[in-house]
Simulated scan of single mutants.
Amino acid sequence: MRVVTLGGGHGLHAMLTALQRLLPDRRLDITAVVTVADDGGSSGRLRREVDGILPPGDLRMALSALSAPDDRGRLWSRTFQHRFTGQGALAGHPVGNVVLIGLTEVLDDPVAALDAAGALLGARGRVLPMACQPLDIVAEVVGVDDDPAAVRTIRGQVAVATTVGQVQSVSLDPADATACPQALEAIAAADVITFGPGSWFTSVLPHVLLPDMRAALAASPAHRLVVLNLAAQMGETEGFSPEQHLEVLAAHAPDVQVDSVLADRSAVALPGRLRTAAERMGSRLDLRDIAVPGTARHDPDRLAAALADVFARLPGPAR
Rank of each mutant, 00 (worst) to 15 (best):
A232E: 10
V226S: 03
L210F: 13
P221L: 07
E236N: 11
A188G: 06
A215P: 05
T194A: 04
A222D: 02
P211W: 11
P206R: 12
D255H: 15
T194P: 10
Q233C: 00
D255S: 15
V208M: 01
E238K: 06
E236T: 06
M234C: 08
A253T: 07
G196A: 00
S203P: 10
P197D: 09
S220E: 08
V227T: 09
D255M: 08
P211N: 10
G235P: 10
V248T: 15
H245D: 13
A215W: 00
R224V: 11
D212Q: 13
E238T: 04
P197S: 02
M234W: 06
I187G: 00
H207V: 04
G235C: 04
P206Q: 05
L184C: 09
W200T: 02
A186M: 07
L228P: 05
V192I: 05
A222I: 13
P197I: 06
A250W: 07
H223K: 03
A189R: 11
A215E: 14
G239D: 02
L246F: 08
T237H: 10
A218Q: 12
A215G: 11
S199K: 09
P254G: 14
L246H: 14
V248A: 15
A250D: 12
T237G: 04
L249G: 12
L210H: 06
E185V: 14
R224E: 04
T194V: 14
S199A: 11
S220D: 07
L230R: 13
L246N: 13
T194C: 05
F240C: 07
T237L: 11
M234I: 11
L225C: 10
A216R: 03
A216K: 00
D212A: 07
D191K: 06
H207Y: 12
V227C: 11
V248F: 07
E185H: 09
L246D: 10
A250I: 15
S203T: 01
R224P: 00
G198T: 00
L225G: 03
G196E: 07
A250H: 14
V226D: 03
D212H: 09
L217S: 07
D255P: 13
S199L: 01
T237P: 15
A215K: 10
